[in-house]
């Protein structure tokens, strides 16, 4: 039986520096889930559905087609990294809950992280810009209308309105 060489990597996850000894073939989505970050969902494993979306150095990527070793010495944000550790949700999370943008919830972490990336650059996005920002995540429940409402409400609140 083949014995695999374990590789040491360091990743900053949600602000904490974490050290791992990994099988170099493990994907980032699997490593994160094995370490308790269950907000990272597994769907297609092909980079199509987007439920495994995380932020890598502040940009959305699909962690099911990214080797964990590629995240070495880089910064990862998962949905667990948003909001207050005491349980107070982030403004975007709150807006998704209030607008009914969450049905089964499976795509929600990816949607929220994509929204965060968008609103960090642009607090007044047009419908097309929202559509472009969310285009990597598939939702089969909501028809996207409530999700658009949630993004707009988040933007309003982050602008200090509403």
């Amino acid at each position: 039986m083949e014995v695999k060489h374990l590789q040491k990597i360091t990743i900053e996850i949600n602000g904490e520096h974490k050290k791992f000894k990994i099988d170099p073939s493990i994907m980032l989505s699997d490593l994160l889930r094995e370490n308790g970050y269950f907000g990272v969902k597994i769907g297609c494993r092909n980079g199509d559905c987007g439920v495994c979306t995380i932020l890598l150095d502040g940009k959305t990527v699909k962690s099911c087609i990214l080797y964990a070793a590629q995240a070495h010495e880089r910064r990862v944000t998962t949905i667990e990294g948003l909001g207050d550790p005491l349980g107070i949700p982030h403004i975007i999370q709150q807006a998704f809950a209030e607008t009914g943008a969450v049905q089964c919830g499976y795509c929600t972490p990816g949607m929220i992280l994509s929204t965060l990336e968008l609103l960090e650059k642009n607090l007044n996005p047009s419908d097309q810009e929202i559509k472009d920002a969310l285009d990597g995540i598939l939702c089969r429940c909501t028809g996207y209308v409530k999700i658009f409402d949630a993004v707009k409400l988040s933007a309003e609140r982050l602008r200090g309105e509403n």
Binding site: G47, G50, T53, L56, K59, T60, V61, K62, I65, L66, S114, D132, A133, L134, D135, G136
Partner: peptide, 8 residues
């Protein structure tokens, strides 16, 4: 493709 893939 889509935004996350274009980042990658």
């Amino acid at each position: 493709m889509d935004t996350p893939l274009r980042h990658q």
